[in-house]
Amino acid sequence: MTGLALPAIVLMVVVNAYPVIYAGIQAVHDGDLLGLGNFVGFANFQDALTDPLFWRSARFTVIFSLCGVFGSWIIGFALALMLKPDFAGKNLFKILLLLPWIVPIVVSSMSWNWLTATPGSLLPMLAADLGFGRVMFLADPTMAMITVCIFKIWISYPFMMMMMSAALEGIEPNINEAARVDGANARQRLRYIVLPMTARSTYISWILMAMFSVNDFATIYLLTGGGPVNSTTSLIVLAYRSVFQDFRPGFGVAISFLMTAALVTMSVILLRQMRKANMQ
Results as ranks from 00 to 15, higher is better:
Ala179Glu: 04
Val135Trp: 00
Asn174Ile: 13
Ser165Cys: 05
Pro158His: 08
Ser156Ala: 15
Ser156Met: 13
Met136Glu: 13
Met161Gly: 03
Pro158Val: 10
Phe137Met: 02
Asn174Phe: 04
Phe159Tyr: 15
Phe151Val: 12
Gly170Met: 06
Ile146Ser: 05
Tyr157Phe: 15
Ile171Thr: 07
Phe151Asn: 07
Ala167Asn: 11
Leu168Glu: 01
Cys149Trp: 06
Gly170Tyr: 00
Val135Tyr: 03
Ala178Lys: 10
Glu169Lys: 07
Ala178Gly: 14
Pro141Met: 05
Val135Ile: 14
Glu169Thr: 13
Met143Arg: 07
Met163Asp: 01
Cys149Asn: 14
Ile155Ser: 10
Ile146Trp: 05
Met163Ile: 10
Ile153Ser: 11
Pro158Phe: 03
Met164Cys: 09
Arg134Tyr: 01
Leu168Lys: 06
Ala139Asp: 09
Pro141Lys: 04
Ile153Lys: 08
Leu168Cys: 00
Ser165His: 03
Pro141His: 01
Gly170Ile: 02
Asp140Tyr: 00
Asn176His: 12
Thr147Glu: 05
Ser165Lys: 01
Ile155Phe: 09
Ala167Thr: 11
Ala139Cys: 00
Ile155His: 12
Phe151Asp: 07
Ala139Phe: 00
Ala139Asn: 11
Met162Val: 15
Val135Gly: 10
Glu172Cys: 09
Ser156Phe: 13
Val135Asp: 01
Met136Ala: 14
Cys149Gly: 09
Tyr157Cys: 12
Ala179Met: 09
Asn174Glu: 15
